[in-house]
Each structure stands twice: as C-alpha cells, then as structure tokens.
Write a protein that binds this DNA or RNA. Sequence first.
DNA 1: GTCGCTAGGAATAATGCAGA
DNA 2: TCTGCATTATTCCTAGCGAC
Length: 315
Amino acid sequence: MTADPKPERAARLAARYRVAADAEATVRAYTADWAAFALWCQARGVAALPAAPELVGDYLAELGEGYARATLRRKVAGIARAHRLAGQSLDTRHTAIREVLRGIGRTHGDPPKRAQALTTPEIQRLVAVCEEDLAGLRDRSLLLLGFAGALRRSELCGISVENIAWKPRGIELLIPRSKTDQEGEGQRIGIPQGQSVATCPVRALKAWLQAAGITRGPAFRGVTRHQTIRDGALTGEALRLILLKRAQQAGIRATLLEPLSPHGLRAGFITTAYRAGVPDEEIMGHSRHRSLTTMRSYVRRSRLGSASPAGKVGL
DNA sequence: GTCGCTAGGAATAATGCAGA
DNA sequence: TCTGCATTATTCCTAGCGAC
C-alpha cells in the first residue's frame, strides 16, 4: 500500500504557514535573542533548554546595565518562544525573572525616547526648504502625505500608485497592510486638499508623480543627484535620512529624549488634531489606532505645550 | 571621491490584548 | 481600568554599491 501524498502535502503546508505566522522582524529578533542566551549558557557549561527561571534571571541581571527594560523583556519573550517551539515551557512570570526585571528598571531605568512630534509649523518649515527639482518635489510630497495621513514610515514607503484613488476634493488612500493590520485586510483613509497650495498634500503628490512620470508601482522612489528615478520603493531608512536632511536645512533640532524620525509625522498629526479639538474617535479613525490608551500617549505629549493644565494656573 | 541611497544587525519603541 | 506581556515596526549604526 502506498502512502497518501495528501497528508504529506498538508504537513508541508502547515510547516510553511507556521513559519509565516510571525513577522520577519519578530523571527529575526527572537532568533538573535535565543542564540545569545544559548551562547551565554554554553560559556557557563549549563543547558539552555530547558532553562530554569532562576538561570534566565541571572542572565538578565548580567545584561541588565547595558540594555533598556523593553529589550530585556523581548529577550525573555525570545527565550520563552524557543522553549515553546521545543515543546518545553518557561514561566516568564516566575518571580526569579519578574523581580530581576523590576529591579533593573528601578536601578538603571531611563525614560523612554519618543519621536519628536512634528506639528504644522515644523512641517511648513520642512516643506519650505524643499527645492523645485525632483528630489524636492518628492520630499515635499513625502512629508505632507506622511503628516496628513498620520502614516507610519512603512506605510508611507509602501504606497503604490494603484492604492491612490483621486477624488474631486482630495484622495482616498488604501493602506494594504500595516502594523495593526497584519492580516492585510486593508484600511482606507481620506486626505483632503489643503487650504494652502504650498502645504497641500494632494497637490504635492500630484506634482511629484507627474514630474517623475510615475504612473504605476511604488509612488515614492529614490532620486539620484542627476535627477534620474530609481525603480524600487524607498526604504524606511531612506525616509529617515531624508527627514534628517530636511530638518537640518530647516534648522529643526532633535533633543536627547525626542529624536527626529518619520514617526514624528504621525505623532505630530495626532498632537495637532488634538490641539485643534478633534474628537478622540475621529483621530483614532484616521490614525487607525485601535487602543485609546495608545492614541492618548501622544495626547499626553501634546499637553507639554500650551494645552498643559500647568500652563493654566497663572504661574 | 561624493551622493543617495540599500542592506543587515542590534537595540528599542509602539501596539493591542489578556488577565487581574 | 490598569498593568504586564508578546509581538512587530522603527531607529540607529555601519558597510557597501552604483552612477557620475
């Protein structure tokens, strides 16, 4: 009797889908975390699998002074993940792990760095330094669309011409996949025309696409200094470098706790919308936040400005 | 050699969810 | 409602590439 090939195929498919279940970034991070822990165990002549919570606690304590608590937490998740894959278990809530993490946080904890919120005045300054050549048109469009759409850098770089629906009063943008849409169901946001021609994201996008002759594929691409357009989409890192360059030209400076990054476009939109009195649910609908708490973390930052209660007590 | 990127790795922030 | 956890995206840094 020959074996039925179907179960074999099903097993292969299942294995392939198990691999695809986690994002590439997660797999990369967890693999590195596990490799580092295994090496540490090997150097001490102890087994990494299964690891006792006390051993993981010792590992964290040794790493403690060099890493942020967020990183240590992820390392624990990576080690636990390796245990699950091997059919073992690691109690990440064991006091030997939890108390070490808490202790490291209390002893060496630094305030987390957050992207500097780039609000309308900063956007105007950034846009003003963009020239009328191809790179300038592209950068202006990138900055305005990223801000107006409250887009993450991956979403901004991932926009293709096919995802843009031109409407009489603006555009409708289809975000095919995002951090909060892992299944790729797609989310649509509307970007209306701006009141000022100089800062209108819709006009800026149209100007860039027309000048670059882009009619399909990635909307935002590399531009060489000789004004030729590359084929592929810009990477997130390229976007960050572009923002840093424009910020330097515009005299916008980063601070130690609030560095400049493309995420500042998103943070800036939320901050500006909140200051303008836009209701929470409308902001969340546009920024595609599912959690009010997360969205409000941006709102708290905005209160550092004139809207802070501390600014209203007559000091 | 310079510019404008891309690629890759390590570290860290952002995010949503489950459970207390 | 708050907190902690797990997951994922982003940041930062460095090296390298291709076009001029």
